[in-house]
Design a protein around this nucleic acid. Structure first.
Length: 582
DNA sequence: GCCGTTTTCGGCCCGACTGTTTTCAGTCG
C-alpha cells in the first residue's frame, strides 16, 4: 500500500498484460527487422511468461526475483526493470524509430508474415494497413519479387477482413480492461458503487465498447475523476453524467455516472441488450409505469431503484441474468417463471483441458495441479499435445507413458485431489488419431482436436471429424471449429452431421473457455444441448493464470442456457470416469 | 535472447503447404 507511483509522478505501474505487450512488440519489431529467430522467440517467450504470471511482475521486480522467471536472463531482466520504472525501454524506442510500428498490423493480414511485410516496406514503402491497401489496389504488389497476382488478390481480401473486425474489441481484451477500470474507479472517494455493464457483462465474444456505470452523490465529480484517469490517449468527451474516450491502444470506453438511487435503472439500460431494454419499457408501460433513461416513473413520481433486482421486482419480474438478456423473449419467460436454471461457476468441479511444460505449457504438472486445487477444484485433466504437433513438443507414446507415471505419483501426493491422465490428441488430416488406440485406451480422458489443415473443404473436414468422433477412445472433441476470435474464421463443417454423430456415439463437445476461442460458441452449444450432446468446459490453459479463463466458458455456457446437468465437469471425478464411452 | 547431468559455447524449432518458381522462401499451426 502507498508504494505505487502516484499521480505526482504521472506514471501508473504497468500491469503484467501491458508489460507483456511491450515485450511482444519488441519481438515483432525485431522480426520485421530480420533479426535471427532465437532472439525474437526469447522476447515472445518472456511476454508469455509475464502474461501467465500468477502475481504482479511489479512485485517480482521489487523483490529482485526477475531472473528467477523462466526465460528471463540478464538482458531481459534489465529491460523489464526499465519498463517498470519508465513505462518503456530505450531499446524499444529505438526499434520504433527504425521500423514503422504500423507494419505490425500489416502482419495481421493472412499470408503476410515478417519477411513479406519487410519486403513490402523496402520495395513499396508500405508502412501500415492503409498504404498496403493503396499499393494493392494500384496493382503494385504483383511486381514485387515472390509476389504475384494471386497473392495480391489474397492480400487485398485479407486487408478487408482485418478492417472488418477492426471496430470490434474481443472480449479477451475488453473484459480485463473493464475490470481494471472498475477497480480504479472503485478506489475513488467520489464513487460509492461501480459496475461493468454493456456487452462485456453479457459475455458477448466481441464488444463495441467497454461500458461502466458508477454511482455517487455527485455524478459530475465522478465523470471528472474518470476523465483524469491515466491511460486515455486524449481527454475523453464529457457531457452531463457521461464520458467516452479511447483507452490505451484505442479501445472505446464509456462511463455513465448516476445518483445512487438511479443506479439500478442505469445498470439495466447500459447492460442491454437494446431489445431487452425495449421489452422492459413496454412492460412498464403495460403496467401503467414509465421506464426511460431518467428512471422509473409511477404516477408521475420517480421511484428510487438502487439495484437491478429492485427494477425487475417493480416490473413484476424475477432478476434476469445478464447472459439471457438478448432478444427480449426472456422477459416473457421470466414473467411466466420459466427462466432456466443456469450453470454457476461454483458448479464446475474441475478443468478438463490444460497443458503443462511437458508440451507447450509454461508450468509443471504439479504447479498446474496445485493451482487447480487452490481454485477449489476436485480434479484436473492433463491434456498435453500429441506427437505430430512437433512445434509444441507434442508427446509420443513413450513420453505419454512417462507423464502418466508422473501423474500417478502426483495423485499419491495430492490426494484426495485427482489428476486425470489425459491427452489432446491431434486429429490428422484423414481423421485418424495421432496416437495408437492402445496408448489412448490407458488414459483417463481423451480430447481430440484439429490443429492443422484447417482449410479443408466442408465434406472432407466433416468426414475427418466423424471418423474421430467414432473412435471409442475419444471422450471429447476440442475446439470444434478452430476459430480464433477476430483472427481466424471457423472451419467449414456440417454441424448437423457432427452433432448427430456426437449424440449417437456419446462423444462430448468442448466449450473451449479460452477467450480467444470460445469454441463451440453459444449457438452451437445450444444446438448441441438440444440434440442431447453433452458439453465439457476446458480452459486450454498453458499457464496457471489462464485457469481463470473458466469464467469465460461459464459465461458462454450460460448464454447457451446450459444448466449443470448438461456439463460434464459438474460431475465428480468418479462419476466422470464412469460415464466414459465403451 | 536464454540455458546448462551436453555448463560459458553451441544448441534452441519441426513439417507441410502455397504460390512462386524452375529449386524454394515464407507462412502457419
Amino acid at each position: 500500500m502507498g508504494q505505487a507511483a502516484g499521480p505526482e509522478q504521472g506514471l501508473t505501474p504497468l500491469t503484467n498484460l501491458e508489460l507483456a505487450d511491450l515485450l511482444e512488440e519488441i519481438g515483432d519489431l525485431l522480426e520485421l527487422k530480420g533479426d535471427e529467430g532465437f532472439r525474437v522467440r526469447a522476447y515472445r517467450r518472456a511476454a508469455r511468461v509475464v502474461r501467465g504470471l500468477g502475481e504482479p511482475v511489479q512485485r517480482v521486480a521489487e523483490e529482485g526475483r526477475l531472473r528467477s522467471l523462466p526465460g528471463v536472463g540478464p538482458a531481459l531482466a534489465a529491460k523489464i526493470q526499465e519498463m517498470l520504472t519508465t513505462g518503456t525501454s530505450q531499446y524499444l524506442e529505438k526499434l520504433r524509430e527504425e521500423i514503422p510500428p504500423g507494419l505490425r498490423e500489416v502482419m495481421l493480414v493472412p499470408g503476410v508474415g515478417p519477411r513479406t511485410a519487410a519486403l513490402l516496406h523496402s520495395e513499396l514503402g508500405v508502412a501500415d494497413l492503409e498504404s498496403l491497401e493503396a499499393a494493392a489496389r494500384a496493382g503494385r504488389l504483383r511486381s514485387v519479387p515472390r509476389l504475384g497476382l494471386r497473392r495480391e488478390e489474397a492480400i487485398l481480401e485479407g486487408v478487408a477482413r482485418v478492417r472488418a473486425r477492426g471496430g470490434l474489441v474481443p472480449l479477451a481484451v475488453a473484459r480485463p480492461l473493464a475490470l481494471e477500470l472498475a477497480a480504479m474507479l472503485a478506489r475513488r472517494s467520489e464513487v460509492v458503487r461501480v459496475e461493468v455493464a454493456g456487452s462485456v457483462r453479457r459475455w458477448c465474444e466481441t464488444v463495441e465498447a467497454v461500458v461502466l456505470v458508477a454511482a455517487g452523490p455527485d455524478p459530475a465529480r465522478i465523470v471528472e475523476a474518470f476523465g483524469a484517469l491515466p491511460g486515455f490517449r486524449e481527454p475523453p468527451e464529457r457531457s452531463a453524467g457521461r464520458a467516452r474516450g479511447r483507452w490505451g491502444a484505442g479501445v472505446p470506453v464509456e462511463l455513465e455516472a448516476t445518483l445512487p438511487e438511479a443506479f439500478g435503472v442505469a445498470l439495466v439500460r447500459l447492460t442491454g441488450s437494446e431489445a431487452h431494454w425495449r421489452r422492459l419499457e413496454e412492460r412498464a408501460q403495460g403496467r401503467g409505469m414509465r421506464l426511460g433513461p431518467a428512471g422509473l416513473c409511477v404516477d408521475g413520481r420517480q421511484v428510487p431503484c438502487d439495484g437491478e433486482d429492485e427494477l425487475y421486482r417493480l416490473l413484476g419480474l424475477p432478476p434476469i441474468p445478464p447472459e439471457l438478456r438478448e432478444n427480449g423473449h426472456e422477459v416473457e419467460e421470466a414473467a411466466a417463471g420459466r427462466l432456466p436454471r443456469l450453470l454457476e461457476p461454483s458448479d464446475i468441479r474441475g478443468d478438463l483441458h490444460v497443458h503443462t511444460d511437458w508440451s507447450d505449457g509454461t508450468a509443471s504438472l504439479e504447479e498446474m495441479a496445485i493451482a487447480a486445487r487452490s481454485r477449489g477444484y476436485e480434479y484436473l485433466a492433463i491434456t498435453d499435445h500429441s506427437r505430430s504437433l512437433a512445434f509444441a513438443r507434442g508427446l509420443d507414446v513413450a513420453r505419454l507413458r512417462g507423464q502418466a507415471e508422473a501423474v500417478a505419483a502426483l495423485n499419491h501426493k495430492l490426494a484426495p485431489f485427482r489428476v486425470l491422465a489425459g491427452i489432446e490428441v491431434d486429429i490428422l488430416a484423414d481423421g485418424s488419431l495421432d496416437l495408437p488406440d492402445a496408448a489412448l485406451a490407458e488414459l483417463d480422458f481423451v480430447i481430440a482436436s484439429v490443429h492443422s489443415r484447417m482449410r479443408q473443404d466442408r465434406v472432407t473436414m466433416t468426414a475427418r471429424l466423424l471418423r474421430a468422433i467414432a473412435s471409442p477412445h475419444v471422450d471429447v472433441i476440442g475446439h470444434l471449429t478452430g476459430r480464433l476470435i477476430g483472427e481466424r474464421e471457423p472451419c467449414e463443417l456440417d454441424h448437423e452431421a457432427v452433432l448427430e454423430a456426437c449424440a449417437a456415439s456419446g462423444t462430448a463437445l468442448e466449450i473451449n473457455a479460452s477467450p480467444h476461442r470460445l469454441d463451440v460458441d453459444r449457438c452451437l452449444a445450444r444446438q448441441a444441448r438440444d440434440r442431447g450432446v453433452t458439453l465439457t468446459l476446458g480452459t486450454d490453459a498453458h499457464d496457471r493464470v489462464s485457469l481463470e479463463d473458466m469464467a469465460f466458458g461459464v459465461g458462454t455456457a450460460r448464454r447457451a442456457r446450459l444448466g449443470p446437468g448438461e456439463v460434464l465437469n459438474t460431475l465428480s471425478a468418479d462419476e466422470l470416469l464412469a460415464c466414459r464411452k465403451g
